[in-house]
């Protein structure tokens, strides 16, 4: 587990030896706060820009404190947008992120269960097949994958957005690792009781995997939400744009001035869902991160 609480040895005088006191402690806090401010500055600036007017931005320097046009800019972004209302793009992103997260978890749970709890013809081949899919990000095979999706007539569809991105085996591997740690006695008992495999899967394996499923959900949701290249290729109609790829489409081509307040409001809207997921499920997120990189 990441970041376990360090056991404080506060009662022993020696403990103070390596912990900072007084001015050094304040110095450390000051450096941390400075670090946080620097890291946060781009987000802060985007937020400020989303609350002021276009003339305030285009005559630099723009203000560094929020203005009074929050409601106006966000309403304009959500319900008018530039090419398409941002509310539509948010919905598309939500469908895509949920589809990828839930779809990948579902097919991986099933196949990991089969690999761990059965001996069937082709099992080893299958295992190596999914191992290979671990290695190739979609960025590397974009042209042929695009052709396949176009061939099925799936351009500008949710299926086209979702399916190619669930064709990777990270989740299968994670579940396999976890299922291997489930005590054999449980399967033995289920078998003796005459329980069918799927009964065992639903009653025992699924409930035991709850935490892993949740941790993986957090990681996959963010992965799906933050996709850029793939939606850029296969959504040619603005109605199907996702918010992350749609922001770039809001910049005018040529020399016109971009509608900065609306673009920045959209950027803020694009980061709110993943930030909420990460911050509110911090423990699960860190666990998922550490697990999925192992």
């Amino acid at each position: 587990m990441a970041a376990p609480e360090r056991k404080t040895q506060g009662k022993l005088p020696a403990a103070g030896m390596v912990e900072k006191r007084g001015s050094a402690l304040w110095m450390t806090h000051a450096l941390m706060i400075l670090g946080v401010l620097v890291v946060f500055f781009p987000i802060w600036l985007a937020f400020v820009a989303s609350t002021v007017t276009q003339p305030e931005i285009v005559s630099p320097p723009m203000p560094l404190l929020p203005g009074g046009h929050f409601v106006e800019n966000y309403t304009r972004a959500l319900f008018a947008g530039v090419n398409i209302p941002v509310a539509t793009m948010l919905l598309n992103s939500l469908v895509m992120a949920l589809g990828i997260a839930l779809g990948k978890i579902a097919i991986s749970l099933l196949s990991a269960f089969a690999i761990v709890y059965f001996r069937f013809p082709g099992r080893t081949t299958f295992f190596w097949m999914i191992f290979i899919t671990l290695m190739l990000p979609v960025e590397v095979r974009i042209v042929p994958t695009y052709e396949v999706v176009a061939g099925f007539g799936l351009l500008n569809s949710y299926a086209g957005l979702i399916f190619p991105l669930i064709a990777s085996a990270t989740a299968t591997f994670l579940f396999r690792q976890f299922f291997l740690t489930i005590p054999d006695e449980l399967a033995e008992a289920a078998r003796v009781d005459g329980a069918r495999p799927m009964r065992f899967f639903v009653d025992i394996v699924l409930p035991m995997s709850r935490t892993n499923i949740a941790a993986l959900f957090v990681i996959l949701f963010i992965y799906g939400w933050n996709q850029y290249l793939w939606p850029l290729l296969i959504t040619t109609e603005p109605e199907m744009n996702t918010i992350v790829m749609g922001i770039k489409q809001m910049f005018p081509s040529g020399d016109d001035t971009a509608d900065w307040p609306v673009i920045m409001a959209t950027s803020i809207l694009a980061m709110i869902p993943p930030v909420i997921v990460v911050v509110s499920m911090q423990k699960l997120f860190i666990r998922g991160l550490v697990d999925s990189e192992k």
């Binding site: 941390m32 890291v39 781009p42 987000i43 939400w225 933050n226 673009i263 694009a270 980061m271 930030v275």
Partner: peptide
């Protein structure tokens, strides 16, 4: 501090690009 520093991870690379471009 950890909670605050996690934020940028959730920001998509493309959105980060727009913020820095701005």
């Amino acid at each position: 501090y950890r909670t605050l520093l996690i934020w940028p991870y959730a920001v998509a690379p493309a959105v980060a690009g727009v913020l820095w471009l701005f």
